[in-house]
Design a protein around this nucleic acid. Structure first.
Length: 947
RNA sequence: GCCCGAGUGGCGGAAUUGGCAGACGCUCAGGAUUUAAAAUCCUGUGUCCUUACGGACGUGCGGGUUCAAGUCCCGCCUCGGGUACCA
């Protein structure tokens, strides 16, 4: 009995595609190319998750469709395989991270092949391949060899960096040190996020609420020598070039916010006696605004220079360089204690304290350059050393944080901006210092500037500050330079050698490992367990690796490794030319394939990966290795797939039901009774036990409708036990069903709950497709007798053309869920037809093929075709055949539908009106009414206004 | 707190430019087929009123614009996600 049996069909076609290299990327790239890319996965030990195939199926459908419309397609897959989990696993099991990673990759490849994706497997890469990270190291050296020319807004070779005459005179060593200060990859000794549990430092982006992103371990600040990448130099371009790409607005905004560009002014407040202020100001006006931080002034950054008249005190960060100098002898001990405490505090503690502000007075005053009045200088940890100048002018009347601080320490509050007239804010209260207003408005208490609107004021005041050289306009970014080194084993080694002197100490001279000596492979290390101290595991490599001698000079290798992000910053380029051993990519091939036309992946990479990759791309672009300024033309984020919907109810310790609205979660994420905090039992219910409230939106217990229950889909997680394994779905329903279901669930970008019943639903559809063509009662696999070479009817032809049109359009807009529903309608229609002309069945199978490729290939063959349908021309439709001759037009009276008439398409509104008014039902309904107006929309509706 | 996104039947979701709300699928109910079951096929399935014919209501809530609003405008509510002292 030839029933639809995916377990037999699917492996057979997968083998066919593999053996025939059906999806090998063509070497001749035609004008119309498609580069469809998935965010490559981290090959975890758990294997593929059902979230992975969602995006992968979408790009696969687009790729398969593109081949059929004649495009040349590049559709590759690879693995982002460096990273902490493999190393942690290796430590735990005393094994090699490489072996573990390779095993996981094999599982992933097997699972991906089971899903029938049309990847060109000859291009498979892993970031951990030595042949791959050779070029990651090479790109690092490009960064090392590049400085950013701010005037040209462009990265240039370090050899083109202008060297000041006095440096030149000081000799080669001075020149090298000078260059090192400008490189895009540079060493720094700044405080970093050190995570003792992971034994490594982390990027700001990898620390969430003072805990590590991976594993939730505490993170502390400590100064360490680190490699940094100067991503801040590219901040403006990373922001402005977002207009060039077709990305979701939300993601663009996230990147913009992350870059956090703000404009305002830097203002110097004179430190010294009020009597010398005029002299200071005059000297300033003569000499101009100093580039470097002056010693006789405190420099602040503000986005609201228009509130300068309201600056009643100043605050510097505890780490600010001038703390000691500004602290008076009397205040010395308490300031020192405050700063020491702040330094001890972890980021986590700082978060907790954020609700209340603390600070201490330094004892010093600075002179407001516009009013000439002295203001006290305080130290407080609500000012960050790393942003702006690490010092602020505090305007408590117009900044919520300053307001809170001023209230706590009884500092004066002066209102200088009146809210817009319409506002409900009470001006009296504002003037009395009782409330704070942070918006824009009209200047008050600002001498000659009074009455100016905020925006005008800003421009005027900057002009004034500029003319006397006490201030200037300035731009700031939230974006920080990228901390690029990790103290772990399982990452790319840096291709950098540190020159040593006779005594074995670093001379400070660095030497890049030359191209011919790349890659720098990971050495064998007996034990790479983190020990809670910041010496990287590579320090334990043998001397031969650690201390190379070149031209008689002894060097020590850099022993930090690169972070996981490094490999994923450029993998999309390597896919274009994966086996090239003389360059990271052939420039000709790069021109043919870049940019990536469609990039699909999860929104969790909205800032990190996408920002880092764009940054590297721009550097490589500036240095002439690439021809596009942006790597990813169109980006789509797939939504998260949640677990099946769950109903939960709550019971107290006396086994009594508790209604859901009386519960809440406590700090330990346990469900408790809101009123008393009593811990409750969480009971998972069978859907049978739940029902919807009679008049309300809540679900309640069927047995006791007074008790509300929770109905929600949760994120899939091991602990919740709601994880769906794709292998199980494939075994039970088939890969085509899994692919189809994930596409049918809803819009790609939306998060949606899994439903086993839904999988069964699409499997049902595939069964129906099978039966539409196959005679299930026959002994051998053969066509159903309904399938014939009969001439199709007009209705049948229209059905096909409508379906072709809808499916084609939906693939273009990635509306896969509606494409599938249109194909379901086609099948519903034809299974009722006793004659199913083969000439209509064939195009339908082609339409289905990108979605359910195994089944489509099988049926295509059954219909008598010899070869794979992968490159068959996509069916075309005739516009005139996509509409019916007759249309049903509703007739409304006062906007309410009264009847429907079936008429020929294309009637004018006059004709429509006449037909409507003659309709017997309408005539009856209009009796006694006066027709005031008739609106007729051709082929759509008629609305009669009558009363 | 701030910034996004979303609220449509029992559930997932459809609905060019405002123009027939609920396509398609699931669920459930009834029927056919069968010795029986599975599978399959057919019919029905927003709510309320009505024996029926039919009618009223209905896209989170309250207003508004319009001949006509899920769609546009104003004001809220709830949920999901992101983010957090960035001056």
């Amino acid at each position: 009995m030839p029933k639809y049996n995916p377990a037999e069909i699917e492996p057979r076609w997968q083998r066919f595609w593999d053996e025939n290299k059906t999806f090998k990327t063509p070497t001749e790239v035609t004008e119309e190319k498609l580069y469809a890319l998935d965010m490559f996965p981290y090959p975890s030990g758990e294997g593929l998750h059902v979230g992975h195939p969602e995006g992968y199926t979408a790009t696969d459908i687009v790729s398969r469709h593109a081949r059929m419309i004649g495009k040349t397609v590049l559709h590759p897959m690879g693995f982002d395989a460096f990273g902490l989990p493999a190393e942690e696993h290796a430590i735990k099991h005393n094994a090699s991270p490489r072996e573990f990673t390779e095993k996981n990759i094999n599982t992933f490849v097997r699972q991906l092949k089971d899903l029938g994706f049309s990847y060109d497997w000859d291009r498979q890469i892993s970031t951990t391949d030595v042949d791959y990270f050779k070029w990651t190291q090479w790109i690092f050296l490009v960064l090392f060899d590049t400085w950013f020319d701010a005037d040209e807004q462009k990265g240039r070779p370090i050899s083109e960096l202008p060297i000041p005459a006095e440096i030149k005179e000081a000799g080669e060593y001075a020149i090298r040190k000078y260059q090192d200060e400008f490189r895009l990859a540079f060493e720094s000794h700044a405080p970093v996020n050190w995570c003792p549990a992971l034994g490594t430092v982390l990027a700001n982006e990898e620390v969430v609420d003072g805990l590590s992103d991976v594993g939730n371990h505490p993170v502390q600040r400590m100064p360490l020598r680190q490699w940094m990448l100067r991503i801040t130099a590219y901040a403006d371009r990373l922001e402005s070039d977002l207009d060039q790409v077709d990305w979701p607005e939300g993601i663009k905004k996230l990147q913009c916010d992350w870059i956090g560009r703000s404009t305002g002014a830097e203002v110097d407040f004179f430190i010294g006696d009020k009597s010398q202020f005029e002299t200071w100001k005059n000297t300033r006006t003569e000499n101009g605004f100093p580039q470097a931080l002056p010693e006789d002034a405190l420099r602040v950054y503000t986005t609201r220079p228009d509130t300068l008249y309201g600056a009643t005190y100043m605050v510097i960060a505890p780490e600010h360089g001038a703390v000691e100098e500004l602290t008076t002898a009397e205040q010395g001990p308490i300031v020192k204690k405050y700063c020491d405490d702040a330094a001890m505090k972890s980021d986590r503690d700082r978060q907790d304290d954020r609700t209340k502000k603390s600070g201490v007075f330094t004892g010093s005053y600075a002179i407001n350059p516009i009013t000439g009045q002295p203001v006290p200088i305080w130290v407080a940890d609500y000012v960050l050393a790393s942003y702006g100048t690490g010092a602020i002018m505090a305007v408590p009347a117009h900044d919520a944080r300053d307001f809170e601080f001023a209230k706590t320490y009884n500092l004066p509050i002066v209102a200088v901006v009146a809210p817009p007239a319409k506002g409900e804010l009470d001006l009296e209260k504002l003037l009395a210092g009782e409330i704070c207003f942070a918006g824009v408005g009209t200047a008050i208490n600002s001498e000659s500037f009074d009455g100016l609107a905020t925006d005008e004021f800003k421009i005027k005041i900057i002009e004034t500050l500029d003319s006397t050289a006490v201030g200037r306009s300035a731009v700031n970014y939230k974006l920080r330079d990228w901390l690029f080194s990790r103290q772990r084993f399982w990452g790319e080694p840096f291709p950098i050698l540190h020159e040593l002197d006779e005594a074995g100490n670093r001379t400070g001279i660095m030497r890049p490992v030359p191209l011919e000596s790349l890659p720098v492979d990971l050495p064998f290390v007996e034990d790479f367990q983190p020990h809670g101290r910041p010496e990287p595991p590579l320090e334990k490599a043998d001397d031969e690796w650690l201390f190379p001698v070149i031209d008689g000079k002894k060097y020590k290798r850099e022993t930090n490794t690169m972070p996981q992000w490094a490999g994923s910053c450029w993998y999309y380029l390597r896919f274009i030319d994966p086996h090239n051993d003389s360059a990271f990519i052939d420039p000709e091939l790069e021109k043919q394939w870049m940019p990536v036309d469609l990039y699909i992946g999860g929104a969790e990479h909205a800032v990190l990966h996408l920002l880092y990759a764009r940054f590297w791309h721009k550097v490589l672009f500036d240095r002439g290795y690439l021809h596009t300024p942006e790597p990813f033309k169109k980006l789509v984020n797939q939504g998260m797939i949640l677990g099946d919907v769950e109903f939960t109810a709550f019971r107290d310790t006396n086994e009594q039901w508790v209604s859901a609205e009386l519960t809440c979660e406590n700090d330990e994420r346990k469900t408790v009774l809101q009123a008393t905090g009593e811990e409750l039992h969480v009971v998972k219910l069978d859907p049978e036990q739940a029902e919807k409230e009679k008049d309300g939106d809540n679900f309640v217990l069927k047995s006791d409708p007074q008790i509300r229950i929770d109905s929600r889909a949760y994120k899939m997680s091991k602990s919740r036990g709601n994880v769906v394994n794709p292998d199980v779905i494939i075994a039970e329903y088939g890969a085509d069903s899994l692919r189809l279901y994930e596409m049918f669930m809803g819009p790609l970008h939306q998060s949606k709950p899994w439903s086993m019943a839904g999988v069964n639903g699409v499997r049902n559809f595939l069964d129906r497709v099978w039966r539409m063509l196959v005679d299930e009662k026959a002994e051998e696999l053969s066509l159903s007798s309904a399938v014939s070479d009969h001439a199709p009817t007009d209705e049948q032809i229209r059905m096909l053309h409508k379906t072709i049109k809808a499916v084609s359009k939906d693939i273009e807009t990635l509306g896969f869920n509606t494409a599938i529903s249109r194909m379901m309608e086609f099948v519903n229609f034809f299974t009722k037809q006793t004659e199913r002309p083969q000439s209509l069945m064939e195009p339908f199978i082609l339409l289905l093929s990108p979605f359910a490729p195994h089944l489509a290939e099988e049926l295509w063959k059954l219909l008598g075709n010899e070869s794979s349908l992968a490159y068959e021309p996509w069916p075309k439709f005739d516009e005139s055949l996509t509409v019916d001759a007759l249309v049903e037009v509703p007739i409304q009276i006062m906007g309410k539908i009264k009847t429907k008439i079936s008429i020929e398409r294309g009637k004018s509104n006059k004709e429509l009106e006449a037909i409507a008014l003659q309709d017997p039902k309408i005539v009856t309904l209009l009796e006694g009414l006066t027709v005031r107006k008739i609106i007729a929309v051709p082929d759509k509706l008629v609305n009669i206004v009558a009363n």
